[in-house]
């Protein structure tokens, strides 16, 4: 599927989900960079839907992943039998989320089949990604692990160029590699003209296809 078709589908989904969720008595919450959304162990009274920005999801000190607009945070805790969040979450950048009461979310699932389908799609995609990430850890070299996270967390700017705002510290948390190792790898990627890092630390992907090809190489 082309990038343009993907973008259009995402826009349609966003409109649909927004429309459905705005019918609930939900609250918009703004978060500054680094601000905690919820902590592991707290009572799981809410599910959060990301409207803007990005949220880091952590288990103890380990970053499971980063969630972006159109995604939910806290969904597995909400649907499980536990009464507490089993993960923590923090804003990676300035973000806006929709705060939905757990009961409202569950009631909506029971009544609205369109919403159910959307959630099913989201969960299926997340499981697929998580299995893929696990495979990445087991099979790949440290360079490939970093490339995987760079590619996964990059987005397209208005000129069609892929970039990521994540810092070496973020990649370290995502890959389990040391910050020193990450910086060394990023420097090597820059020397090979695969990426470019500007003074603000933004990483631009210069050769996305080549990076994807390195990722497919056997160990």
């Amino acid at each position: 599927m082309s990038d343009e078709t993907n973008d259009m589908e995402q826009e349609n989904q966003k409109f649909e989900l927004n429309f459905i969720l705005n019918s609930l008595n939900s609250e918009k919450v703004e978060l500054n960079i680094g601000e905690t959304l919820f902590k592991e162990g707290e009572s799981n009274d809410y599910v959060f839907f990301i409207l803007e920005g990005s949220i880091k999801v952590l288990k103890s000190k380990w970053v499971i992943g980063i969630t972006y607009p159109l995604e939910f945070v806290g969904i597995t805790s909400c649907l499980s039998e536990t009464s507490n969040y089993t993960f923590s979450s923090k804003a990676l950048e300035r973000s806006i989320v929709l705060k939905i009461r757990k009961m409202d979310f569950k009631n909506l699932l029971m009544k609205n089949s369109t919403f159910c389908k959307q959630i099913i799609e989201i969960l299926c995609a997340r499981i697929k990604l998580t299995d893929f990430k696990t495979k990445n850890y087991i099979e790949n070299t440290s360079k490939q692990r970093l490339l995987f996270e760079i590619l996964l967390n990059s987005k397209k700017d208005l000129e069609g160029q892929y970039f990521t705002n994540l810092l070496p510290e973020d990649f370290s948390e995502l890959t389990g590699l040391s910050i020193r190792n990450i910086k060394k790898q990023l420097n090597e990627l820059q020397i090979k003209n695969l990426i470019e890092i500007n003074t603000a630390g933004v990483i631009t992907l210069l050769e996305k296809e080549k990076m994807e090809s390195i990722l497919r190489e056997k160990r």
Binding site: L79, S80, R126, I127, T130
Partner: peptide, 26 residues
């Protein structure tokens, strides 16, 4: 709808298991 909800709970449980496995491996 109740069965859809059950499917969602199953998927959610699978996701939780997959995430735990990821943490364990990493």
């Amino acid at each position: 709808p109740k069965l859809s909800f059950k499917v969602i709970q199953l998927l959610s449980k699978d996701l939780k298991g997959a995430e735990q496995h990821l943490i364990d491996v990493a």
